[in-house]
Design a binder for these strands. Structure first.
Lengths: 230, 230
DNA sequence: GTGCCGTTTCGTTATGCAGCGAAACATCAA
DNA sequence: TTGATGTTTCGCTGCATAACGAAACGGCAC
């Protein structure tokens, strides 16, 4: 059976239908940076009324693509999980778009961005390569793991010690980077690393979109950890 | 801009809409093994009339997902290229399907299958790993290349010499395997290797679907080339 | 030539669904 | 309490399009 190991025609069509509306596509794209957003903001992002947006969000929720948590009179929607983010990333990858229309490459996005909630782009790939090369990351059956020497080095570089000490307990998932076509660190480990770098001010989020902007200090610190951008 | 480096909401919706119809999804799934099929056969695969199928095929063609070549009174449709196949593979990957419905894993598909026109699954990954380990494959900026010692070994194992001699001129593309989550050899090199293994009878296509069945002889020969299935 | 077959085009019908406004519901701030 | 704000539900209209049958257009065989 062609579809035995993956989706059958109805499941595939159902997923396609969820993307088939520009309003829903816009909402999903707006959520790809991993932040949760209230319904009204998503309605504005999609340029539709509140009632329409609500209906679309319900469909995406029922389809398993979104999660939601209520807080006061707001309902915050987010992508349902890392798999959904990875899937969307793959869906929206430029290779297939290129023949349709040349994609305008955004330099900052190529350099560093969030892939859902972890670091991707040239910087993410450089980090993964460098640390694998130094033996700071090793891959086992259940994913990537940080070694003890890496923890020491992170502390040296200014990482808060209690946070660094917990990192080896987290598992990383290698995640294919669509602009670089090489692997970077995702999963709980990738998320934790990225969160710390944001906290430390080595990176900050762009006002809009998924780009991450490394600070001068951040680049210096990363260089001492073997991570260099050409 | 969120979508700067990839698709905007309209392009994403357009692609979604192409998948959103079970009939079109069925046609695409039927073409994922890389073979070209006439319109009538696709109509039957999708369980719709000839007129309806023709309209769907036109939409997929205009959308850039299919290619076509006429031969006599038949028109043979095929996926537009490797990127489309890879994109569909990503669309239909089981991770996102799992929460919707547990996917029934097909043992033969997991072991060996076509990823569009090249070998994927456990066997494809094993081949890639083994040959990279032996230095028979090396990766350069523009992809994977077969080394001369590998050519000699292939000839030893029964590969037709003129074919084997041409292999180092072909470039391979490393392709992420969705069941194994590791890389295998795609691109022109992967296609050529797979075609030869089919010609040699080391593999044969399953009657239906994308599974590839290795013969006892094929497994023996592959083992002499370092490729082993656990 | 004539008939057969695979395919596309045309014309038609019917259905699914996106969109909005109005109203209901919930939460927060006076 | 009352009013303001964020969100969902309901009812409605209009449009896009999937489906089929009939007919037209090719290529092939006799």
């Amino acid at each position: 059976m062609t579809e035995a190991a993956s989706l059958n025609r109805y499941q595939l069509a159902e997923l396609g239908a969820l993307l088939a509306e520009p309003a829903r596509a816009a909402m999903l794209l707006a959520l790809m940076d991993g932040r949760a957003r209230p319904a009204g903001e998503l309605a504005r992002a999609a340029s539709v009324g509140a009632a329409t947006a609500s209906a679309h969000l319900k469909r995406l929720l029922d389809g398993g693509l979104l999660g939601v948590h209520a807080q006061g009179r707001h309902r915050y929607y987010r992508l349902a999980g890392d798999e959904v983010a990875a899937w969307l990333e793959a869906m929206a990858l430029p290779q297939i778009a290129r023949p349709l229309r040349p994609a305008s490459a955004d330099a900052a996005m190529c350099r560093a961005r969030t892939c859902y909630r972890h670091l991707a782009g040239a910087l993410g790939v450089a980090l993964c390569d460098a640390w694998l090369g130094r033996g700071w990351l090793h891959s086992s059956a259940d994913g990537l793991q940080l070694s003890q020497p890496a923890v020491e080095a992170l502390c040296q570089a200014g990482w808060p010690e209690p946070v660094a000490r917990r990192l080896p307990q987290l598992r990383g998932r290698s995640c294919l980077d669509w602009t670089e076509r090489r692997l970077h660190v995702g999963g709980p480990l990738g998320v934790a690393l990225t969160a710390s770098m944001l906290d430390l001010g080595w990176l900050r989020r762009a006002e809009r979109g998924r780009a991450l902007l490394p600070s001068a200090d951040g680049l210096r610190r990363l260089a001492t950890l073997g991570v260099r951008l050409d």
